[in-house]
Nucleic acid binder design. Structure first.
Lengths: 347, 347
DNA sequence: CTGTTAGCGCATTCAA
DNA sequence: TTGAATGCGCTAACAG
């Protein structure tokens, strides 16, 4: 039983060599004879010393092998979002083989202060809920990669959210043969407003200019509506605070209660689209005959559902891989990833 | 523009006070006049010093406000498992308000060495894939909470997997009126073997004694089979390496190809049960008339699916909360959580 | 209430 | 190739 807690120093003393020698044995093989190195390593192993203390080494070197994954919202919430999960999977896939660990960080937090000294940098998946965080991340000296939003001239990974939203909305709206058939649209938006409420979104609520993906998608929908000459009454946009079945269903219920009942639902996530579809079916509304629904993201469940959901498929896992690669290579590029319109049975 | 990189020392010098005073201003309000404290804090803020470097403080204090969440498998895989996600949600829910951050750690890794010096301890969700990790976690001096398996006399959170498996299997088997109706069972097991292969599991493959949840569940199934006097031919157990639709579907296909075709599928996860159900329906097999299926875990999707899956519902989120609470309180208790049989339309 | 000092455990000069 | 010394940035004990 080796109860003693070894340190580099104590080990060196015990072995009768200097601490630099032990340090070199672990970190710089070229600095000592390989024979001596082997000896030392073996002795350390036998004694139960597993190498230099990583916290101390990090303090000294300034590197940590930890990157903070800044989530838009609380960890609690993000972990159950399939799109975020795919993204994390992509990130982990690239980082794990490099021996880099992932620290989950909530976008609700007031400050990165508690972790900034522990990590090599940040990968931010979506604009953090708390604006203070954004300010800080903009001034931080460590590396930052942003995803689905931009920050000064940091590296970033994006898709053309506006263009994608326009395409998917168009796909739905083109199903109508105006003027014989009239499209009545409603938009189920995801985090259009900075609130936890499910509510209507009126024009005066919206910021003039925003780079958040929700607003970009909204702009895309609007372009499509305009192109198809469909006017959207101002009470036809909902805010859903998080992409959950429960919240989405409530909003869907509200939207379907309006008269004339909307016959197109533009949903900012597949989870929302699925919830809306379930609500509609539960009310006996036929999809797509009486109601067309489109989603966004391209999650598996939307393809397994009946009817399959028309959506914009984006490869979230790849997004994660790209972000992690940028991070590792310390590149400061902006990457724009492709998306793909997937037409299902829901329109 | 404050380009200078402040340290406690340099700030103290700049302000003409001792470093202890600055340190106290941030950490121990009672050690100095609140007036001076305010002054110092304000000055620091103005100068762009955001408080003591956390890495250095941690080296000194030995605490990190980081806990490693050790996953059974790669981060990449675990992040997409809904049950694991619920668990993580529970953990995050308790830890986040305490300002404790979560470091994701892969159960495939050879050694906790790279992170052990950065964390206050470990929460292990399921037995890590790599046995070396288990050895190390058993000897680590930091706090460990295990979930779904036990480690020496560390704190742990569990359910009675064997009892639960027995119950759910019984529920399915009791639907048959022997001897008129004969149950032909097959088991779709999750990680019964330490391999990436989808394959049959023969008795000689199995360890005699195992505390892994897969083997406990298998034991439970066997008890139920015995109690209902159903014999299980030795080629009716499958190993599925991970709880994914794709793999499970392949195994289900194999199982349904056997003659006489099984009319009961005991599945070790809901994801597997869902995949099996989809495969069966695709083959035109009627559930539950021609085939009964039971799952394990109680995920949302299994309740939304048609037919709803009979399963053991365990509250994974609560499991996470319990584990995190044990961790925070530094308790060394073993907690056994209840489970609930939920009978759906699949039997 | 304030200041001085000795480490936390290590990596890196620089001299030998 | 090795060893002694310095400091990464901080906290806690102690002295004033």
């Amino acid at each position: 039983m080796t109860e003693k807690k070894w340190t580099l120093k104590s080990i060196a003393a015990h072995l009768g060599v200097s601490n630099a020698t032990v340090s070199n044995a672990f970190n710089r093989p070229d600095q000592l004879s390989s024979k001596k190195r082997e000896e030392i390593l073996a002795a350390c192993k036998a004694l139960g010393y597993f190498g230099p203390n990583k916290a101390a080494r990090s303090l000294r070197k300034g590197t940590f092998n930890i990157v903070a994954l800044v989530l838009p919202d609380s960890v609690e919430y993000m972990v159950s979002d399939p799109v975020a999960s795919s993204f994390m999977r992509g990130v982990a896939k690239v980082l794990e083989p490099q021996g880099i660990n992932l620290l989950l960080f909530s976008g609700n937090t007031d400050s990165v202060n508690n972790i900034v000294d522990f990590v090599d940098g940040f990968i931010c998946y979506g604009r953090p809920r708390n604006p203070k965080l954004i300010e800080q991340l903009a001034t931080v000296t460590k590396q930052v990669v942003t995803v689905d939003f931009e920050l000064q001239d940091q590296a970033s990974v994006n898709i053309d959210n506006q263009g994608a939203a326009r395409e998917v909305a168009k796909a739905a709206l083109m199903q109508f043969n105006a003027p014989a058939e009239q499209a009545d649209a409603a938009i189920l938006g995801l985090r259009l407003l900075d609130t936890d409420l499910i509510c209507r979104v009126y024009d005066h609520h919206l910021p003039k200019l925003s780079t958040s993906i929700a607003h970009q998608r909204l702009a895309g929908y609007r372009q499509a509506l305009e192109a198809c000459q469909v006017t959207l009454p101002e009470d036809r946009i909902w805010n859903i605070p998080e992409s959950s079945e429960r919240f989405a269903r409530i909003a869907a219920k509200e939207a379907l209660a309006i008269r004339p009942r909307p016959n197109v639902l533009l949903c900012m996530s597949d989870l929302i689209a699925l919830a809306a579809a379930r609500e509609a079916l539960a009310q006996g509304i036929q999809i797509p005959q009486e109601l067309k629904i489109v989603g966004f993201d391209g999650i598996d469940e939307a393809e397994l559902f009946q009817p399959t959901i028309t959506t914009i498929h984006q490869n979230s896992e790849n997004k994660g891989e790209q972000a992690a690669s940028l991070f590792i290579r310390k590149e400061k590029r902006q990457i724009r990833l492709p998306f793909e319109l997937r037409v299902g049975q829901s329109i």
